[in-house]
Computed example of a mutant assay.
Amino acid sequence: MAPSAGDRPDAAAASDGGLPLADRPAESLTRTPAGARRLRRARRVAHLLDDAIRLPVVRYRVGVDALAGVVPVLGDLLATLLALLVVWEAFRLGARKRTLARMLLYVGLDLLVGSVPIVGDALDAVVKLNRHNVRLLERELERES
């Protein structure tokens, strides 16, 4: 018997066959084609920031967020601007103020922690806050449908 979505700690259960929300097509979570494009864009940005690059040998994925921290101040600001794109798409998709506030809190924490040399870069590589923001958005969209 295959494990259900509830058995996976990082997956929010969906109403259609127990697929995690992240595995569902964007069209099934949004009402319009424009909404689906916005969700796909948010997913792509989060992937770019958190998982786009596979490190050889250790076989671990990191994103631009962790690598951008190598360039002091400018790299973290660039990563924050990209992370704000996810929040902007959530706003355009009609996410509740509470959800947007949580997402902004995560972006702020990412900026604050990421700006600490070495430790911040390591945490950016391990803690995937942009992916978490997309999961918040997906849950919000599931709630609305």
Rank of each mutant, 00 (worst) to 15 (best):
L123F: 14
G18I: 10
L111P: 01
H47W: 13
D16A: 11
K128Y: 12
L81N: 03
G94Y: 00
W88R: 12
A11N: 02
R61K: 15
D50M: 10
L39F: 07
A83T: 09
P56C: 06
E138D: 08
K97N: 00
D124C: 03
R43L: 03
P25T: 11
E138Y: 15
G75P: 04
L100N: 01
I118V: 15
R143V: 02
D23V: 06
N133F: 08
R59F: 12
L123D: 12
R38N: 05
T80H: 02
L78P: 01
I53W: 03
L93S: 03
V73G: 09
Y106S: 04
P9S: 09
G35N: 05
E27G: 10
R61Y: 12
P20G: 08
R38P: 07
G63P: 05
L109I: 05
L85M: 04
L100K: 02
V113H: 09
S115R: 07
G94R: 02
V107A: 00
L81F: 05
L112I: 08
V70W: 14
L109P: 00
A36F: 05
D65A: 15
A101N: 00
P117A: 09
A79D: 02
W88T: 06
R98K: 11
L21D: 00
V62K: 07
I118T: 14
L129G: 09
V57W: 13
R37Q: 07
L100Q: 04
V64A: 14
A52D: 11
L67C: 08
V45H: 02
A83H: 11
S115H: 07
V71F: 14
A90K: 04
V62Y: 04
P72Q: 02
A42M: 05
D121G: 15
G75E: 06
G108D: 02
L109F: 12
G63A: 11
V116Q: 09
R143C: 05
V58T: 10
L48I: 08
A26P: 07
A79Y: 05
P72F: 10
L85K: 10
T32L: 01
E144M: 01
L78Q: 03
A42R: 01
L105E: 03
V127H: 15
